[in-house]
Design a protein around this nucleic acid. Sequence first.
DNA 1: GATGAATGAGGGTTCATTCAT
DNA 2: CATGAATGAACCCTCATTCAT
Lengths: 215, 215, 215, 215
Amino acid sequence: MVYRTTPRMERRKAKRRRRLLDVATRLFADRGYHKTTVPMIVAESGSSTGAFYFYFANKEELFLQLLLEIGERVAGQLNEAIAGEKEPLAQMRAAVERLILFLAANPAEARILILEATTLGGGIASTQAEILTSHARSVEKALRAISEDPLPEDPAIAAHCWVGAVYHAVRYWLALPASNRPPAARVASEVARFNLRGIGHPPAREERRPDQRSE
Amino acid sequence: MVYRTTPRMERRKAKRRRRLLDVATRLFADRGYHKTTVPMIVAESGSSTGAFYFYFANKEELFLQLLLEIGERVAGQLNEAIAGEKEPLAQMRAAVERLILFLAANPAEARILILEATTLGGGIASTQAEILTSHARSVEKALRAISEDPLPEDPAIAAHCWVGAVYHAVRYWLALPASNRPPAARVASEVARFNLRGIGHPPAREERRPDQRSE
Amino acid sequence: MVYRTTPRMERRKAKRRRRLLDVATRLFADRGYHKTTVPMIVAESGSSTGAFYFYFANKEELFLQLLLEIGERVAGQLNEAIAGEKEPLAQMRAAVERLILFLAANPAEARILILEATTLGGGIASTQAEILTSHARSVEKALRAISEDPLPEDPAIAAHCWVGAVYHAVRYWLALPASNRPPAARVASEVARFNLRGIGHPPAREERRPDQRSE
Amino acid sequence: MVYRTTPRMERRKAKRRRRLLDVATRLFADRGYHKTTVPMIVAESGSSTGAFYFYFANKEELFLQLLLEIGERVAGQLNEAIAGEKEPLAQMRAAVERLILFLAANPAEARILILEATTLGGGIASTQAEILTSHARSVEKALRAISEDPLPEDPAIAAHCWVGAVYHAVRYWLALPASNRPPAARVASEVARFNLRGIGHPPAREERRPDQRSE
DNA sequence: GATGAATGAGGGTTCATTCAT
DNA sequence: CATGAATGAACCCTCATTCAT
């Protein structure tokens, strides 16, 4: 008798599937969703058309898997960052910085999340929206928690500004030729500064005093 | 016989071209670039394939025209808004608000500029980038002009945050069901507040009164 | 100015369409629906994939067109045959004979109607059923009109026997090697004899008298 | 150790094979040959692709097995029916009725024999033809035996009419919604009546009484 | 014997683009 | 200038079949 599925087989399957996902990530990021063909992914993976459709229902579904995976990794980063701080403000700053560092370290994933997912059907764009919106919701929640100022009439808007600032800054950074990009850490702290100020919390001590503000 | 080209013919040509552009705008915004086919545009325009390729080199080129046009209209709005104010800060605020009001009033154009252009090749994405970057450059310039704070090490980053906040807020607003969208004006002022604060210029307690603004 | 559609163009279109239909008829009859590919039809027609899908929504639709056309031609034959006779019995006989002669003269069409259409989806099998059933209904009507015997409890059954006899005889005839097929006319009269007797009307004079029947 | 093949193994093999055949029968009848995939059969049988190809050379071969089996069962029914009667005419009537009752009681098998087999290659259509032809030959033989009338010039034709009537009637019956089908027995006797008349043997006025039948 | 992952030829179909009319 | 019929490369996907485990 032979095992229904041996652990070894299981491992090989996982590996193949992963290879397809990884190759697809690179191709999607480099050439875009539409210019990446299934034959391409298959060829670069050293796999076959049949294998592709054994692992994924179709090209769109593969992309969706990718996106969900990225969403989870991002969420994981954010949770970790937040768990590392006690104060809400420090948490928000940490989250921004961690997110930017993560995206900068994983540019292909960043491109897929920020750019490619934007215009695709089949629940992809809405999954992207879900991910971004969930960030915005966290920001909004924090915003409500810490605000000393009178709250904006519509904190959701500020929250989306926050998210937009983060992702657009990353987009800008990714668009720069790799040779003269500023260090990701600087982008991270700059964006954090912009956003914290944006919600009324100038991050550094000396900036906190209103009388030192521009006048 | 007739002149090589009569003024009347000129006018009709222009009209046809315009109709194609307008129909395409709507279709691209509604269905996305890839799901909009040339036959569709042609059919809805009451035109013909031949006409299409007489006026535009190809589908991509049509989209590019659209995008450039939108870019110009947006720039026009910004210039007008800026021209209406004297003080740099007031100009920045005015620009943000005008831009948001314009995009909210022209959602199809907004979708094309913000979403559809993002993932297209053939110089489209780079044209989009150029439009957004030119906004960012204006912001950066203004930023350098007004800042009394120690400038951020990299003002370009703050500038891109600014732009990202604007466009992402609009994107959020567009994604809401039209029935329960907040008034565009509120979005405009909220984003302006966020951004001005982001660059270190929080409006004074009573935000509305110009005399209390940082100056 | 040029005509929207010139008569000449119209004729060329009709011709092309016809050529595709004709080639498809032959291929479907020879190789069956599933083993006939669109590229095959296109190649033999000296046409192109694009042209194929310009004229027909898809392969199935082409087949359906074919089937409907055959159905109409058959109906035309039947109507002609019936119109040529006054007495119901003579009409029935004429219809059977004409139908058989027609099918024998158009074996490809016969194969498509009798065989290929049987197992196809997309409304094809039901169209076939429609055609055969309409024959059966005519037979049933005639049956009710002429019957002197006590009518069968369920004349629809006899009617379908009639139709089955006709088509199965043709199928048998088509399956014979062309070299030793009996003349179609003989098949026609033999089937007519079988069917008329089947409904209680021995066709020949000497057979009509019951006392002369087999005993 | 174990015997090369124990009786128990034999039995399990037979059972598996049977299960594949049975599931395939149902699927072929319900969805048609082409829309039934090997994975489907395998999944519904709780078996595996490998097992499938252990028991059958390929999909076509499985179908052929099915068809041969059905052919044998039908032949068995016919033989039984004939054995139960002495007089040729009674035998012919009994055969028709038994056949119809059998097909009505086994609609999946009927569909496979009558419909699905019609358009398949690989010797399937010809096997179907053989089955039907063998019925026709029996009919023809009986026809020659009993006929007192001048024989038709081509008794094979009448024989095929006979067969066509039977199968087409069943096909008609199968196509009716199960809710308002006439009883199979009525179809059987109606078809028998039609066919016996068709070959010149009308049952006497009171059809049911055997002593009044032509003899 | 049994499994199911892997193969890949080949299918139908789409659509941007061309060009004879 | 205008038309729309015609092109064909290229796509995504299916599924019968094989074979390493």
